[in-house]
Structures are given as C-alpha cells and as structure tokens.
Amino acid sequence: MTLFLGSLQLGLIYGLLALGIYITFKIMHIPDLTADGSFTLGLAVSAVLASAGYPVVGIFLAVLAGALAGATTGFLQTKIAIHPILSGIITMSGLYSINLYVMGARSNITLIGTPTLFSMARSRFDFVDFNLLRLVILLFFALGLWGALTWFFKTHLGLSIRATGDNEAMVKSSSINITATKIIAISLANACIALSGAIVAQYQGFADISSGVGIMVIGLASVIIGELIPLRKGVANGFLTAILGSILYRLMIALALQSNLFPAYALKLISALIVGIALSLPALRHYLAFRKIRKESV
C-alpha cells in the first residue's frame, strides 16, 4: 500500500502548491512564474530552521517568505509596470541566489535525524501507523488551507480580488485599488506555494536547491486536471478541484511507474501522455456529440 498511500500524501502536499497556482492562474488570470523560486524558498527556510531545531517555526517563516517573494513580483508588475511573465522570471531568478544564501551556500541540507513536523508527531502518536499518521497531518494542512482560502475569497477583499481577475477594465474604473488587489493575490498564492515547499522538505527528509525545478508545470497540470472533475462551480469547489487534481496527477504518475513496459527514460513521456489523454476528454466529448447530431440530421 506504500505507493497508493504515498501517492495520496504527495498529492496532498503538492495540492497546496496547486491551490497557490489556482489563485494566480484561474482567479487572477496572471501567468506567474515565481513558483519555482518561491517553492524552493519555502523549502530552504523550512529545512534551515528544522535543522536548527525549530521545525514548526520554520513552516511559519516559510509562508511569510513566500508571501514576500510574491509581493515582489506583484510590485514589479504593478508599480513598475513590467510584463507579468517577466516579473515572475525576475523574482524567480533572484530567488535562486537568495535560496542558496538561506541554505548557507550549500545546495543540499539533510533532515534525516533532525526533528521535523512528522518525526515529532510520530513520537507523540507512536501507536498509529506512520504512513497513516502522515496522511492525517497532510489532510489537516490541505483541508485547513482549503477552508482558509474559501473563507478569504468570500470576504470583501477576496471578492475584489476575484473581480480584478474577472474584469479588470470594470475594476479599474471602480473604487477598488487594483494595485493592491494584484499584489495581495500574488503574495497569497506564493505563500501557499512556499508552504508546499516547506512541507516537502520535512516530508522527504532533505532540501536540495533543484527541488523547485519544474514545479510550475506540476502545479499547472494539477489545476488543469482538476478542471475535469465535475463539481458545481463555486469558490469552495474550485479550490477543491485543485487539490483533487494534484492527487489524480500523482496517481497517474504512480500508474506510469508501475508499468514495466517502458524503459526508464520514458517516465516523463508516459506521464505527459497520460495527462494529455485526460485533458483531451472534453474535446473528445464535443466531437462525439457533434457526430451524433450530424448522424441524426441525415
């Protein structure tokens, strides 16, 4: 059961990442490339503080750091009027050096043998199977963040942010300050992404500077796969699909891993194919419906 439970766990951890990407990608419609950098920042902060003996503080500070990274991108986009994609790239590039600095100019920190959130929970609840315990902890984080974001986006501030992403022209000429809403949205998104990185570090037992490479793609894939899930549209359900999409994506990878039909180097191709097929379902359905109509009209 290790693989199945492990996939669920990974799905929940990267679900936090997906929640962050959901905010910038689906609510704000802004392409934000800060993710690779802010994820690693969260990872680095969490690892450094955990190895110093403060795993929980590490997670809090990681979230703050992520928010700061997001605020930087937001600032570049709004006040300095740099194109959104470039703003994200600038922050992400700068963060590479900052992350190395945070890690003390090492590219790898080990947490094997130092107290982490998970090891602390294990010593407290040693009567529970460790895999199950980790799943519960991760569920707590995922559901907690989901609840918090759902609440936030139903407040006035959250509504203003959603409106900014929906019809910027309208919001610009209303009394809402779109500079503020954009910066807050991007900060919040990257805080979630950094949280994901922080938990990954303590989950996998080490922090490596390359851990954030390709994280943006993983987040986007999770969000887009989540769109396939048939739930009634709404703020709460939207966020839920991000988490579920992440879990489904991990299950797809697990499936790809278990098949021995393909050589090792084909892993990414296989997972890309699986994702591609899943995403082509809407187009397939349209085509089949069209064929049906044509048939009946003959």
């Binding site: 059961m1 290790t2 693989l3 199945f4 492990g6 996939s7 990974l10 990267y14 990954v200 989950y203 996998q204 490596d208 390359s210 851990s211 490479v213 390709g214 994280i215 993983i218 991990r250 990878i253 697990a254 891993l257 278990q258 021995n260 090792a264 180097y265 892993l267 990414k268």
Partner: peptide
Amino acid sequence: FDYRNAQGDMSNLNAICQEMVNS
C-alpha cells in the same frame, strides 16, 4: 535490475522510492 530515472523532477523521485518500497 529495475532502473528508474526521475528525469530531474524531485517530486518524481519520491514517487519512485515509494514504488520501490511497494514492490
């Protein structure tokens, strides 16, 4: 020999380890 390559993706690395333990 069962050779697996994470192809640069750390999240896949975790999944590969899980799969190996599983099997």
